[in-house]
């Protein structure tokens, strides 16, 4: 090749291929080694891997498990959890929380001021470093206090109570609605209910979305609703748990019909023409009775009270 002379002068200063690649291998190993050693939690990871250090576990009855865990899981774990580990930080376990992320520990037990976690949640949401980041709802003051108190008290996994901690917010869980079951319960009378609802608009309704029990409220129909109308509802009698007949035209003649309703719990007869309610106490499920502004005498109520039925009005009462 024509260039032979041009490069021959440097031959003596060159490395052999073996020496060069040996150096490259050493440097590469050193670089990889250093980058591994530079990981903040490496020491703990290695010791735990070799079984020489116990993986930190929190007691299930601890303040951490009861108060801190739910908060971290709902507010932090989406980005610092099983699916994603932003900055190599996991906040979905006690061990992960104590381990910290690629920038080191996020908690200094007992030192709230210098704990990164406490600092980040305390920043205004306009700050780039605020956590949760802007666009996501910040922690409430109570939630921040829970985390700060827990760190201030040593970030313990066993400590049960911390004085001055905000009370936990009660959690209400609504049971799942089993629509098929409800439909099945309602089925035998469903057609009848629909027909009577058409005849007496606004009077008949299911007590709740998860039951086949019914309540009737004829008070808005006032004197347009009388004994014959109540009689017309007889096919539904077995299902009626509440009946508001206040101000309607029903009379004592309807009382046997009401007394025979097996599930009737609350009955309002205020402002009606009923007077002699003897026998009504036989209604097996009756719990309360309103007879305000009626001619029901005080003496007639004793039998009701004796059965534990609460009575409003009647006699000399309001």
């Amino acid at each position: 090749m024509s260039g032979g002379d041009g490069i021959s002068g440097r031959q003596s200063g060159r490395l052999s291929a073996a020496a060069y690649f040996g150096c490259v291998a050493l440097l590469t190993l050193a670089g990889v080694g250093l980058s591994i050693l530079a990981q903040p939690a490496l020491g703990h990871d290695m010791l735990q891997l070799m079984g020489l250090e116990r993986v930190p576990q929190a007691d299930s009855a601890s303040f951490y498990a009861k108060r801190v865990t739910p908060l971290l899981e709902t507010r932090c774990a989406a980005c610092h959890g099983e699916k994603r580990q932003k900055s190599d930080l996991r906040l979905d376990s006690f061990a992960g929380l104590l381990r910290g992320g690629k920038h080191g520990a996020v908690i200094r037990p007992g030192d709230t001021k210098n704990s990164e976690l406490s600092l980040r949640i305390s920043l205004p949401s306009s700050d780039d470093r605020a956590m949760p980041p802007s666009g996501k709802p910040p922690l409430t003051e109570d939630e921040k206090t829970v985390i700060r108190l827990w760190i201030a008290h040593g970030a313990s996994g066993v400590l049960r109570d911390i004085a001055g901690a905000p009370k936990p917010v009660a959690e209400v869980k609504l049971p799942e609605l089993d629509t098929a079951r409800v439909e099945k319960q309602r089925a035998p009378l469903a057609a009848m209910v629909r027909r009577l609802q058409g005849r007496f608009p606004g009077v008949i309704a299911y007590e709740a979305r998860d039951t086949a029990d019914l309540e009737i409220n004829a008070s808005l129909r006032a004197t347009d609703f009388g004994d014959a109308d109540l009689q017309a509802l007889a096919p539904l009698a077995a299902r009626i748990v509440r009946a508001d007949l206040s101000g309607t035209a029903v009379t004592d003649a309807s009382l046997p019909v009401l007394a025979a309703m097996p599930k009737l719990k609350n009955l309002r007869l205020s402002g009606t023409k009923v007077g002699d309610i003897r026998g009504l106490e036989a209604a097996p499920a009756l719990k309360s009775l309103s007879v305000v502004n009626t001619k029901v005498s005080g003496s007639a109520l004793a039998a009701f009270k004796a059965k534990g039925i609460t009575v409003y009005g009647g006699g000399d009462g309001p």
Binding site: S2, G3, G6, I7, Q11, G13, R14, Y20, F21, V24
Partner: peptide, 30 residues
Amino acid sequence: VAVGFYLLVKGDNLVWPMITGKKHRARLPA
């Protein structure tokens, strides 16, 4: 690593030409 190989083992500096655009005539095909 390849650039280092050319520089240190083959004595062919590939970095400098990538700055100046010019290669030594001796290290080019005829």
